[in-house]
């Protein structure tokens, strides 16, 4: 992909580190989007460099902020612990010494509520990029970038052309798709769409969810502007 001026002049983010703070926040966002509901309990297992320096880089607060749908440029990331308490979200951080096959900056996030449980493994691979390598112990490889794009995560069945109506709607709304990546699992697939020009409003997200074959659509930001 061609370098944009705003790859140099940006991203606008909350410090101190792009890989350890902003990247961590993005992994949290993706985990929350995949969870499809409001979690009441979250556990973070930190591996490698995340385990060693997470406090200095505020990786812990950024992860938690991401799970609460905050953006990488939200100055409230600092207050993530307080906000979690207010929202009655219980959290725990566990550092793991041994990290056999993972990239140095890796976290396993386990989200729970009364109905569901979800486990997501993600790594921040530097330069604003993150990858999701496991969902519920199924190995995948999903790459996301923060800063330049807003991402849409779409869960759908494996039928051919199931996404075409989604593209149609986005074209109708004048929202260009910059890139897409699909991960196929046994019965279902997961597609990440990077879009530019603002993000979808909640009614639009709900409209996409009603399309046949689409299980869920998540916008990896706050769903609505405050």
């Amino acid at each position: 992909m061609q370098n944009s001026i705003f790859d140099v002049a940006g991203p606008i983010m909350v410090g101190p580190s792009s890989s350890h703070t902003a990247g961590a926040c993005k992994i949290g966002q993706i985990a929350r989007a995949l969870f499809r509901g409001t979690p009441t309990e979250v556990t973070f297992y930190l591996y490698g460099s995340f385990a060693q320096v997470y406090q200095g880089h505020a990786t812990d607060r950024a992860l938690l902020a991401g799970v609460m749908k905050m953006m990488t440029s939200d100055s409230n990331i600092k207050e993530a612990f307080k906000i979690a308490k207010k929202n009655k979200l219980a959290y725990e951080f566990i550092t793991v010494e041994e990290a056999p096959d993972h990239h140095p900056n890796t976290v396993r996030i386990i989200l729970k509520n009364a109905k569901r449980k979800l486990s997501v493994v993600g790594s921040s691979i530097g330069g604003g990029k993150v990858t999701i390598t496991q969902i519920n112990n199924i190995n995948i490889d999903l790459e996301a970038v923060f800063g330049r794009f807003f991402s849409l995560l779409v869960g759908h069945n494996n039928e051919e052309d199931v996404l075409n109506p989604v593209y149609g709607k986005l074209i109708d709304w004048g929202i260009p798709i910059t890139s897409k990546q699909t991960i196929s699992m046994k019965k279902n697939s997961l597609t990440m769409l990077n879009i530019e020009e603002g993000y979808l409003r909640l009614p639009q997200v709900l409209e996409l969810e009603k399309l046949p074959g689409i299980q869920f659509v998540r916008s990896l930001t706050k769903l609505l502007k405050e």
Partner: peptide
Amino acid sequence: ARMGKIVAF
């Protein structure tokens, strides 16, 4: 360093 909003430029 104190987690304020900046531009990574």
